[in-house]
């Protein structure tokens, strides 16, 4: 199933300006699991009539894993080129479904000449719900379901966004159960700081196994996430406990996409 999506170049060619640029990110573009999140979010935007564009082939890694592994040169090169592209199109507002992209675009690009209004997709969804643009089914698929929410580090502690994703979940009438470690005290999934791309150091267990166990302890049927890396890590953690048939890890955008009113 294809999604109707226009690129920034297409908008520019037709002389139109989109409402917002959807920064897809590397995971959202290439990782099969994360692609489903990307499509879900694009479908929501299409359904409610948000005029959005993507950079398409012109998008490149923000440089987050490079910078956090210590490779500042590579980060600066990626940032230089991305800012060139974004400023070339006169981009003003960016929405992204990845908290790592969100953090770096919002907080670290301005020092390099990239100044945009950057918004995470969970905050964007919350705003669309509040404005009445996204309308959710009464008695949707998640009504009354026991759901726990995993705060990603770069949305939560990194940028103090704890409530917007929870408000979206509440709008779907879910029964939200918190983990012992949540909000400012939330535990990492183990992927940040470029850990996603290497083996963990020697330890007693893996970070994602530990975090998934904490999520399973709540007895929730769905673990709601806001980050493609967390989604992957927690899914692996749930599999490790052989609970994948009972417990699903879902991005909040996927849940909203399934709950849209006709």
């Amino acid at each position: 199933m294809s999604v109707a999506v226009r690129s920034m170049a297409e908008y520019a060619a037709s002389g139109e300006t989109p409402e917002v640029l959807f920064w897809v990110g590397c995971a959202g573009s290439f990782d099969q699991r994360a692609q489903r999140i990307t499509r879900a979010f694009a479908q929501i935007l299409n359904k409610v009539g948000v005029k959005f564009a993507i950079l398409g082939k012109e998008e490149a890694c923000t440089g987050d894993p490079a910078r956090r592994s210590g490779n500042e040169f590579l980060f600066q090169m990626m940032a230089y080129n991305n800012i060139h592209t974004l400023n070339g199109y006169g981009v003003k507002k960016i929405v992204t479904a990845c908290p790592h992209c969100f953090n770096i675009l919002k907080n670290e690009y301005p020092a390099l000449g990239g100044n945009y209004e950057v918004i995470h997709h969970t905050t964007f969804l919350q705003q669309l719900i509040n404005e009445g643009r996204v309308r959710l089914k009464d008695g949707g698929a998640f009504k009354g379901k026991k759901i726990t929410y995993h705060d990603s580090c770069y949305l939560g502690r990194g940028n103090n966004i704890y409530d917007a994703p929870r408000e979206v979940l509440e709008a779907m009438d879910v029964e939200l159960v918190e983990m012992k470690r949540c909000r400012t005290n939330g535990m990492c999934c183990g992927a940040g700081g470029a850990q996603m791309f290497k083996e963990e150091e020697k330890g007693t267990t893996r970070v994602n196994f530990e975090r998934a166990e904490q999520a399973l302890e709540t007895g929730a049927n769905i673990i709601a996430a806001n980050c493609p890396f967390c989604t992957t890590m927690l899914t692996d953690g749930v599999k490790n406990k052989e609970q994948e048939d009972n417990v699903k890890v879902m991005d909040i955008a996927e849940m909203v996409a399934q709950s849209l009113a006709e």
Binding site: C153, N185, M187, G192, G193
Partner: peptide
């Protein structure tokens, strides 16, 4: 190497 930069 073990740091996930989670800021906890």
């Amino acid at each position: 190497r073990a740091c996930t930069s989670c800021q906890a």
